[in-house]
């Protein structure tokens, strides 16, 4: 485990992946909860971001409530994977893009403001890559929230 987090950073990640304060000075609210000060919280969070552990403080959305989205997959010849993956990632509608171990080896989530924009984006990906994009839109979710418990050994 090469990750080096301060105790404050660990506590921030444990406590504020959800329910982030919506007070006018949220970092001060957090600071008083954790017994430190606002500047210390802001610099601890900036450091997490600089080191690539934090993507952003932001929102994740319930599928279908904020716009349109679909999981999608492609079967890409191995020797073209890097190239095609880069082409797919180039579209700002892509929010996750992974190589997975299967014949369908490239998996990504396409998001857009509405269904028409989503369709347009998927068609544009097919045109750009010359490969079919299989769609697996969500029917129903049973667990969506993706927060991580930090379990240190």
């Amino acid at each position: 485990m090469s990750t080096e987090l301060t105790r404050l950073q660990t506590r921030l990640i444990e406590h504020f992946q959800r329910g982030f304060p919506t007070t006018p000075r949220p970092f001060e609210t957090i600071a008083s909860e954790l017994g430190t000060n606002e500047d210390t919280v802001i610099s601890a969070i900036s450091d997490l971001k600089d080191k690539g552990y934090l993507d952003r403080i932001g929102a994740t959305y319930a599928t279908g409530r904020a716009g349109a989205s679909s999981l999608a997959a492609m079967e890409v010849p191995d020797d073209q994977l890097e190239k095609i993956a880069a082409q797919v990632s180039h579209f700002t509608e892509i929010n996750h893009n992974y190589e997975r171990e299967d014949k369908l080896n490239l998996w990504f989530v396409v998001t857009a403001a509405d269904q028409a924009s989503l369709e347009t984006a998927i068609k544009a990906i097919e045109t750009k890559t010359g490969l079919p994009v299989y769609r697996m839109p969500m029917i129903e979710h049973y667990r969506l929230d993706l927060g991580f418990a930090l379990k240190w050994n």
């Binding site: 994740t60 992974y98 984006a121």
Partner: peptide, 20 residues
């Protein structure tokens, strides 16, 4: 299992765009 992560970023929700 995932092998490589090429992208992780926020979903493109928000105001609709006329074209991609």
């Amino acid at each position: 299992f995932s092998k490589q992560c090429f992208t992780q970023r926020a979903g493109k929700y928000g105001a609709p765009r006329a074209s991609v």
